[in-house]
Design a protein around this nucleic acid. Structure first.
Lengths: 349, 349
DNA sequence: CGATTTTTGAGGTACGCAACTAAAATTCTG
DNA sequence: CAGAATTTTAGTTGCGTACCTCAAAAATCG
């Protein structure tokens, strides 16, 4: 049996470092916090002592001493679908957690789908916020609003939906073209050896994430699965009833429909239409976001796979990134990358 | 635009609560930390003040004041495969992070596959540790060692591989039968409409996680996909060369082999054999754990899907759970559940 | 060399909480 | 009802760090 990395039971403090380096506490403080006014020679002595003792600042003590607090704003959509409801709940949880860490999150409900309303909300944001997470729209006015916030020194991250050309510091969300490609691969492989058409249903073509998913989906489907023909995109406007009607019409019209990829919301409508048609088992249906409804459809076998982004991860990641930016700490891109989850009936959490 | 949950910019402190309740700091402390020796009437007064001011303890200050440190041991396998190497690295990272939080992790390298060696390591563990994470074996002696640690007041969590009948406090890892079922569903659906045999390659039948995966795999394959016949399990002993030979023999023997499910390690051997046979594209291969090798095979198209458990999540989760147990805090099961990831070429992180 | 600048030391305060001791208030006992 | 026993409360200290001031020491310069 070998033991690695055995650490001292008692952690070294700043004072220990000062003693072993033969300097005062103030000097150690200057070196550790990279303040100026210390000779290179002394710096080296102190750093040697730090290395020797394995000194690491106690984050609890540091935070307490610094005493800074953070105010963050999360701009989320009003009302809206199950995914957004979940996201809001997760942001609320994150807020509860952050409250113990000197961070405060205010949730602002805005009609994020109207660029003018969203931009106005960002423009009129209280200057009390050091960080903002926003479900963005890739629209000139919104971009301008984000850029202005950034210029004012406010850290901005986009959440779920990006505005890539803006000066936001970070995007917290999945790679949507890749999500679309993932859906296409699943669709193609689940339909190996079968010929026919595949329908693509989006919420709206003006939503960047939806168009990106479609793009990825079409890219793979057309290049890898020539047996499947993608039909023109249907806009369901994320509305269940409208989506149900459109799906029902589609099923009536397309006898050789083999699959449906829904890259937006309104899944309840698709389930209704599919189950009413009696072709639920035969048609491969792939949708986005794990919700109470999609979960049920998946278990029942109507839905074949769910592409998911974890709203809990997204909320926590956004908060972590904003906090890191506010306190000048680095972030580890690895841990903040939001994964594209695939859920089948068998690996549901 | 509506704003929710606006919080005070300045957080209320214990002193604020004491002032508004008209009692001393010490009394508030007793109430908040549920110590005895406070009249019911006073308790009510304090709690009213807490509620009114929205008081939340500052975790940084609390940790500092408490001043307790934690020592955790992670018992990991010596040498071993890519997954275990990744896991070790992630545990090391977690240790670095914890060092700033008054927690110390020692990594103990042990031959975890030998029940006697593992049990002995656990039995001889220094009493300095308040928590232990161990890649367990479900073996009487190991169980007994875990139970004794628990009896001694040490928090034990099993990592990756469980010992369900022991008194471990928690299992940090995936649901292995579900992982096997997930693999079977992917296999079955990728092979829709084709008939033939499917090989199952395990590391060793004495490893609980491997047998559980097989169980789940067979369960679904036999009930849902009668077109596919599972061959008797091959033991590759997690060794690439041995696995290569076995796979090559298998390919030579079974002309109608349609799929390979490898629920252990040794994937490099499978890739070699498959690619040498020229049937890499035709045979559906599903494996576990995303490593530098499996990633390459997936991108190349030799491997069709990876079932993964995130070692970073597992390391952090184990540390969080142990810490929570040590300081008597509750854990949120939701966040600590390790997901079964499915990776295709398109959603690789 | 003295004057000036740079570097260092010593000491202090504050952060918000936990844990301890001592004192006050209450209840109980004879 | 006094005095002891007990419960309840107040007051204090210390955790490890950040940040500040002021003076002393050292180095640099003209």
């Amino acid at each position: 049996m070998t033991v690695a990395a055995t650490q001292p039971v008692l952690r070294a403090t700043l004072e220990d470092v000062a003693r072993t380096a033969g300097v005062s506490l103030a000097t150690v403080d200057r070196v550790v916090n990279r303040r100026e006014g210390v000779r290179a020679k002394t710096v080296a002595r102190v750093e040697a002592a730090v290395a020797k003792l394995g000194y690491r600042a106690d984050v609890a003590a540091a935070r307490l001493a610094r005493g800074q607090t953070f105010r963050l704003a999360f701009v989320l959509p009003t009302g809206s679908n199950s995914f957004m409801t979940n996201l809001t709940e997760q942001v609320q949880r994150t807020a509860d957690w952050l409250a113990g860490q000197r961070g405060f999150i205010d949730i602002l409900h805005v009609d994020v789908f109207d660029p003018d309303v969203l931009a106005a909300a960002l423009e009129n944001l209280s200057p009390a916020y050091q960080g903002v997470a926003v479900i963005a729209l890739d629209h000139p006015r919104v971009r301008a609003a984000i850029d202005e916030l950034t210029a004012r020194g406010v850290a901005v991250v986009t959440l779920v939906s990006d505005a890539p050309s803006s000066r936001r510091r970070h995007y917290v969300g999945i790679d949507n073209p890749a999500a679309g490609r993932t859906a296409a691969t699943l669709m193609g492989r689940f339909l190996t050896g079968r010929e026919g058409t595949v329908a693509v249903i989006a919420g709206s073509l003006s939503l960047r994430d939806h168009t990106e998913r479609q793009f990825g989906f079409h890219q793979i489907l057309s290049s890898e699965y020539p047996n499947l023909l993608a039909l023109p995109v249907i806009e369901g406007r994320d509305d269940s009833e409208r989506t149900r009607e459109l799906t029902a019409a589609l099923l009536a019209r397309q006898a050789n429909l083999r699959g449906i990829y829904c890259c937006g919301a309104g899944n309840r409508g698709i389930a209704d239409a599919l189950e009413a048609s009696g072709r639920a088992r035969e048609v491969v249906w792939i949708a986005h976001e794990l919700t109470q409804y999609t979960r049920r459809f998946l278990v029942r076998g109507t839905l074949d796979a769910i592409i998911n982004q974890d709203p809990g991860h997204e909320a926590r990641s956004a908060a972590r990134v904003l906090l890191a930016h506010c306190s000048g700490e680095p972030i580890s891109p690895d841990q903040e990358r939001i994964r594209i989850d695939i859920f089948l009936r068998d690996n549901l959490p």
